[in-house]
Design a protein around this nucleic acid. Sequence first.
DNA 1: TTTGCCGTCCTTTTT
DNA 2: GGACGGCAAA
Length: 743
Amino acid sequence: MAIDTILDGLNEQQQAAVRHVDGPLLVVAGAGSGKTRVITRRVAYMISQGVAPQRIVAITFTNRAANEMLGRVRMELERHGQDGGGRPLMATFHAFSAFLLRVYGRVLGIDPNFSIFDTTDRNKLVKAACGDAGALPVGLTAAKVGDRIGHAKTRLIGPDQLEQLPGLPEYQRAAIARIYRRYQDLLRENGGLDFDDLLIRGLELLENEEAGEAIRRKYQYLLIDEYQDTNRIQYHLARRLAGERRNICATGDPDQSIYGWRGADLRNILDFQKDYPDAKVVFLEKNYRSTACILKAADSVIVRNRERKEKVLVPVLGQGEPVEVHTLDDEGEEAERVVRIIREAKRDGMGYADVAIFCRVNSLLRAVETSLREAGIPYELARGVGFFQKREIRDLVAYLRVLGNPDDQLALERIINVPTRGIGQLAQSVLKEYAAEQSVSLIEAVRRAGQIERLGKSQASVLRFAELMGRLVKAKDEMGLSEFVKRVIHESGLHDYYQRQSRSPDPDDEDDRPDELSPVANLDELVATAQAFEYDNEKPTLQDFLAQVSLVSDVDTVKTDSDRVTLLTMHAAKGLEFGVVVIVAAEEEIIPHVLAMEDGVEEERRLFFVAMTRAKQRLHICCAHRRATRGSYRRSVPSRFIREIDPKVVKGLDLSSFSRPARNFQFVINPKRTESGTNTAAAALPKCSYRSGQRIYHEKFGYGVIEEIYLSGNRYTAGIRFHSAGVKKIVLDLAPIHPVAES
DNA sequence: TTTGCCGTCCTTTTT
DNA sequence: GGACGGCAAA
């Protein structure tokens, strides 16, 4: 076998990692040190040494990483003429667990048709649980309680323990524990597993003697990427899976641990050597990605972390250009600068795909998006509400879920009257009542609609719906997956329903983007996804398809190969690299984020470090003097992380403008807002710039003069004296735009 | 029963 | 500036 070519072009440490096949291995891989390359080569090497591909599982953090790695491994195998027999399994922890539970779950009493409940489903179910378990505690929302429960579950804390847990007011704890219990019951009744359950039950499966043994026999070599981001359950899963063979290879970098909020536990990687005292440990420290300047800059930030093992990144590339800091007036100017940076990169021979824009929160992406669209620059973004969150897609998936798992009441409730078919709130509660009285499932109540006289006028509608579902259930077994999905779209009436609703794009409406697909087109898109799934899988079952659909995230769908600028959150950026990186909104309270500060600043610093180290040649960091957040403007302060960068490698690091207070301001009045919260006073004012002393005209109050402008809380308020109506206070939407020259 | 409007509340990161 | 819930009108 061509071992030489497998080891080709690898440095000494990399080779050492690749050649280690049996027994525990820890690869501590700094940013840009060629980790993925090592993993893929190692898989190829293992196979060349006679390990059967299907005995290998590689666990990654995102589906994107899994797919990418699978692609690269296959390329590697082809290169060595070994692509004949089977392929390694590459998946996320969640996907892998879901897969195991489908196959072996019966041992734990889990029906293989279980539905996967995502965060939205979870919160809805929590809400239902609140109804059953007594109302929500004051000051909490279903989503917050859902978060609490999820938080507890990832840490293997049950309702009883949660009740004992300090930290929350007592009345809340008791209520949350009660809701938690009810929620778990509801999940069971729905035949559903949430994201946490997938891992918890997966672990139970491995702890089960019979199933655990079978699984360990099947998967004898384990690779886990991003080990620093594993949580406690995943840690136990990994250890159980590795079992006594202990063929476990963990790769990761403590400096890139950015998922503490999700339960990730740095101890997992730090203690690897305690768990496996004989583990081989390889440090990859040579950085092949970034210029020395960028590395220096990133290093000068990360060294501020106190809870850190000292580590160096040795540059291989040359000095490069200094990191550029841009201080702008507001996000509009920032956007212009971003456009300029992109054009410059383009001019210097790079493609759009070489450029990425990062920000801390999704909501900031939208501002950048708008300006790129206006500038005619093609872009690709992973946004919070992506394809699988769209209403029509969730509707369709709900149909599929009910058809695959009749117990999935949550999905059933979603679609029972979508498209509207005359089964309103009243009819639904009658059905639920009946189901409760007879202790049958909701779908059974639907089937028995003929016997439920109470339904009155709706009875016929419910009967029609029952027939529809009956027909579709039959269709499921009679045709291929994508064919079936198409059938569901049409027969359910979803197609016509969304066809009717769609309208042609309005060219006058700036927010109406023509590149946004219509709901009907999105439905078709899911059919295409099903077709691709059929193509990729030997036995394409509805359940596996639904699992895939439920477990993909928006980061997974970002394509970095088309010629587009990439817009990402810093979290989503992990594992990627770009020629030019622009970090926008590097301001206090954004990065580090206010809400993250209670857990300390170190994880935020690591996040910033991750963002910086994505850059190969150029790194730009932007911060603005003021920024619009949720409709009004705030002054901002440059992120402390900017000040932490070694000045020797930075250009434009003059932040003095931030300490100078502006004296005369211009303001935009938000037509929607006034002091009282009603729309009356400001509604008649055109949205444009104003400044104090300026005469204005107001439809209702007539002429007036802006008398004073002051800051109340985060908002600026203008006192305007109207000739007819005296002084009115109007909340302004905008803080200073430009200091106006005094004349 | 459905639709649309208005007011309220929130506001991190993701499998 | 958006999501969602409640409420009133069609």
